[in-house]
C-alpha cells in the first residue's frame, strides 16, 4: 500500500547546504522546537552521518565516530533511562551513572553497525510531523540505487533549549521500543540486578 517515490539524487544539494549549516548558528529554541528547526538539526546530523558512512574507514574507527555523533546529538542519558524504565528509580545515583555510561557505549556501537549498512545510500528528508510538547518527527528515506528505499524517522525533542535526537524509527520500528524490550529482558534474566546489567552492557 505504501508507494515508493523515486527521488533524484540530491547528495550534491544536501552536502552543499549541510556544509553551510555546520558553520551557522542554530535559531533559538526558547519557544519549543519549531518544526523548521528540527529539520535543520536533522539535516546537520545527516551530513555528519554521510561523512562517516562514506569515509571508508575501518569498522572500529567508524564506530568511534558514531559514538561521538551519538554523544553530540542525542538525548543519550534520557534514552538510557527510557530503555531502563521504572527500574531506574530504585537504584543509587552511582549505579544509575554507571548504567548510563555503559548503555551509551553499547547503544552507539549497536546502531553504528546498522548505520554502516547505509554506506552508498542517500538519506533524504521528505517531511516532518509536529508532535506538540513531545517534539517533532522528521521523516526521511534511505535510498539506494539498486534496492528499494526504506523510511527512517528521527524523533527530535528539546533538552535544555537544544534539539536532541530521542528515537530513530526504521520502517515503523522504534529503536527505543526495541531497546526497552531488550534491556527489560536482560535485567529480568539477571535477576533484576542493575550492576550485573551494567557489566553485561560493558562486555557487549
Amino acid at each position: 500500500m505504501r508507494s515508493i517515490t523515486n527521488t533524484m539524487s540530491r547528495r550534491g544539494i544536501l552536502v552543499g547546504t549541510g556544509g553551510l549549516l555546520i558553520g551557522a548558528t542554530l535559531p533559538s529554541f526558547a519557544l519549543g522546537i519549531m518544526e523548521k528547526s528540527a529539520v535543520t538539526f536533522i539535516r546537520k546530523v545527516v551530513v555528519d552521518v554521510h561523512i562517516v558512512i562514506n569515509s571508508n574507514k575501518p569498522e572500529e574507527k567508524m564506530l568511534a565516530d558514531f559514538e561521538s555523533i551519538f554523544a553530540d546529538y542525542s538525548a543519550s542519558s534520557l534514552i538510557a533511562k527510557t530503555a531502563l524504565g521504572a527500574a531506574g528509580r530504585k537504584i543509587s545515583q552511582n549505579q544509575l551513572a554507571a548504567y548510563i555510561e555503559a548503555f551509551q557505549r553499547y547503544f552507539s556501537r549497536k546502531y553504528g553497525r546498522q548505520f554502516r549498512k547505509f554506506a552508498g545510500s542517500e538519506i533524504n528528508i521528505v517531511g516532518n510531523r509536529d508532535l506538540g510538547s513531545k517534539g517533532v518527527l522528521v521523516k526521511s528515506t534511505v535510498e539506494f540505487s539498486s534496492r528499494p528505499s526504506y523510511s527512517l524517522g528521527w524523533w527530535v525533542i528539546e533538552v535544555n533549549g537544544q534539539p536532541k535526537l530521542f528515537d530513530l524509527v526504521i520502517e515503523g520500528i522504534s529503536m527505543i521500543s526495541s531497546e526497552r524490550t531488550e534491556i527489560g529482558a536482560l535485567l529480568e534474566s539477571l535477576g533484576g540486578d542493575i550492576d550485573r546489567l551494567t557489566a553485561r552492557l560493558e562486555a557487549t
Binding site: M1, L131, E171, G172, I173, S174, I176, S177, S178
Partner: peptide, 27 residues
C-alpha cells in the same frame, strides 16, 4: 514488537500524538 510496529507502519496507521510515549516520562 518489531513485527507489530512494522505492520502498523505498513497499513499506515500513524499513532495519535497522545498515544506516543512521553519522552520525558523517565527523566
Amino acid at each position: 514488537i518489531a513485527y507489530l510496529q512494522n505492520l502498523r507502519y505498513n497499513v499506515e496507521i500513524e499513532p495519535e500524538i497522545e498515544d506516543l510515549e512521553d519522552p520525558f516520562a523517565f527523566d
